[in-house]
């Protein structure tokens, strides 16, 4: 464990707390993409299947349960919560996720770390899917133009988590002799690159004060 990975995990937890605060606490799903939330639920339910046999680290075990629980809770409230359904904009949340899920599934089968292991295929699929899971959310924000304050912090924390993981992989590559993780490194680069535009507008709007809403052109 290094500081980059620890901060990345904390940023990830923060993004969940912000989203849960908005959806469950604030009873509002305005500006939030259900499609992104559902893809994240798929990402965690597929990647963390090894909860059934990998007890290597209690820290990882607990956070895996937390991430699966939080992502399923968010999907549940967005689908069945009366006030959340009322504030969720299904028409605008229209990104064709089948064009994200299908290629990631094919890539997961073709490019993974052990072609004899179904878990490795599923694991690689979840890494690829996570890299593009934010697209429906960014697409929705782009359509709406203005990003509500809490939503902007949620998206920022979610983007920052994988950016910190990039630093973690760089650090491990430099400090651990034969550490090599091409799949997560490339996927993490793509994932973080997708946030660059948002990061820019987030910074522009927040440098005048944390409570300003983020405007996307």
């Amino acid at each position: 464990m290094n500081i980059f990975r620890f901060l990345g995990d904390m940023s990830h937890i923060l993004s969940f707390l912000l989203l849960l605060h908005k959806i469950v606490g604030g009873k509002s799903a305005a500006g939030i993409s259900l499609r992104t939330a559902e893809m994240y639920a798929i990402v965690f339910c597929t990647r963390y299947i090894d909860l059934l046999w990998n007890f290597a680290s209690l820290y990882n075990y607990l956070l895996k349960l937390l991430f699966i629980g939080a992502s399923l809770t968010i999907v549940y409230f967005m689908r069945y919560g009366p006030s959340q359904k009322a504030t969720y904009n299904a028409d605008e949340d229209a990104f064709p996720v089948q064009y994200l899920i299908a290629p990631c599934a094919v890539l997961g089968v073709l490019i993974n770390q052990d072609h004899s292991s179904p878990f490795e295929m599923v694991w690689a699929f979840s890494i690829y899917l996570e890299a593009v899971a934010i697209l429906p959310q960014l697409f929705l924000l782009q359509k709406q133009g203005e990003v509500e304050n809490l939503t902007s912090h949620y998206v920022f924390a979610l983007g920052a988590y994988r950016a910190l993981y990039l630093l973690n992989w760089m650090f491990r590559f430099m400090t651990e002799p034969d550490y090599q993780q091409r799949i997560v490194w490339l996927s993490g680069l793509v994932q973080t690159a997708l946030y660059c535009d948002f990061f820019y507008h987030y910074y522009q709007s927040k440098k005048g004060g944390l409570n300003k809403s983020v405007k996307l052109p």
Binding site: D9, N60, K64, F67, Q113, D114, W123, Q181
Partner: peptide, 10 residues
């Protein structure tokens, strides 16, 4: 790369 048990990250 790091198949199997050495997946020590989230």
């Amino acid at each position: 790369d790091c198949p199997g048990a050495c997946k020590d990250e989230l």
